[in-house]
């Protein structure tokens, strides 16, 4: 089998960077086109690696990238990992970054001379969590289509659904990987931001099951999706499934139960005062009801099994 050429967006973020490093170790991959948003000095130097910083919120730049450098390098697989990480920022620019970029990549890839596969890193946050839905979340689980959901979630759902809608419409193979929350700094993890506080307030009387992923496992799943021919949606769970209180304890924090109605204003105040990103309103449901990704399909089709547990500071 000939080695393939891969383009990775979001190469300045932890998952994208890790994926680029893993691909450099992968003998089945020849050239790698890493696309960070800005200059990414921390990416390794390698003759197989080409780094092209591009602001993907501009459709013109995306076009120039795909029909410029990507065409010259004969890119066959595009891995799109770039999503706006901050829940604080909203508006048209963020939407362009999250959704329009995805839409542009799709339509351009469909008519590209060398691209045959697009792998989108989506997010478990697209799923609806509520008391009457299964704890184990399969790929056909209802999505959070609520109009009252924050833009952070709405954009992710729209990008995901946009990719899903194009599956099977053209010869472009599309794989959507709905990854569990990556519990690491710089990934946009709401839970990581929540656990940054010494005292973690939580809803009294509830202790839902959570599932979290590591950067290594996330990059590993994306790498497997690059080499697979299968299309469709794949849940990517992490190796850690535990209740919220156990996560708080394992992170070395003090969990204080409070009535749920007080948590939203408390965390709104925290966000205003300290600039933290965590929004309780965005996480209310999953702080009450369990939601754990069912990775059966990823195991069967991608042979992906999470094997890198989180290094819990106080475990």
């Amino acid at each position: 089998m000939n080695p393939i050429n891969v383009m990775v967006t979001g190469a300045d973020a932890p998952v994208g960077e890790r994926l680029v490093r893993d691909l450099l170790q992968d003998s089945r991959v020849d050239r790698i086109l890493a696309v960070p948003w800005k200059e990414a000095a921390h990416l390794p130097q390698d003759e197989r690696l080409v780094v092209v910083p591009v602001d993907l919120s501009s459709s013109r730049r995306v076009h120039e990238l795909l029909f410029g450098k990507a065409r010259d390098l004969k890119i066959e697989v595009v891995v799109h990992t770039q999503l706006h990480r901050s829940a604080r920022e909203e508006g048209g620019r963020v939407h362009r970054y999250n959704v329009d970029t995805m839409r542009g990549l799709l339509s351009l890839s469909e008519r590209h001379p060398s691209i045959r596969r697009l792998v989108l890193r989506s997010d478990a946050a697209v799923y609806q969590i509520q008391r009457d839905l299964p704890v184990l979340i399969a790929e056909h689980h209802p999505l959070n289509m609520s109009g009252s959901a924050p833009q952070w979630i709405r954009d992710r759902v729209e990008a995901d659904v946009t990719a899903c809608m194009r599956m099977g419409m053209t010869s472009l193979q599309i794989a959507v990987l709905r990854t569990a929350e990556v519990l690491a700094p710089g990934t946009g993890s709401q839970l990581f931001d929540y656990l940054e506080s010494t005292i973690c307030l939580r809803p009294a009387g509830f202790d839902p099951m959570l599932n979290v992923l590591t950067i290594q496992d996330c990059a590993n799943a994306l790498q497997r999706a690059i080499h697979c021919q299968a299309q469709g949606v794949f849940n990517i769970p992490g190796a850690d499934t535990l209740p919220l209180t156990a996560a708080i304890r394992a992170w070395g924090r003090l969990g204080i139960p409070m009535p749920g109605s007080l948590l939203s204003p408390a965390y709104r105040l925290r966000a205003r005062v300290t600039g933290h990103d965590f929004r309780y309103g965005m996480n209310r449901r999953r702080f009450h009801y369990s939601g754990v990704l069912d990775g059966t399909r990823a195991r069967e089709v991608l042979s992906f099994v999470p094997c890198h547990p989180v290094e819990w500071p106080a475990a």
Binding site: T241, P243, A250, S290, P309
Partner: peptide, 9 residues
Amino acid sequence: AGHGYDAFG
């Protein structure tokens, strides 16, 4: 499922 709990808690 890890940490001593099953996926349902």
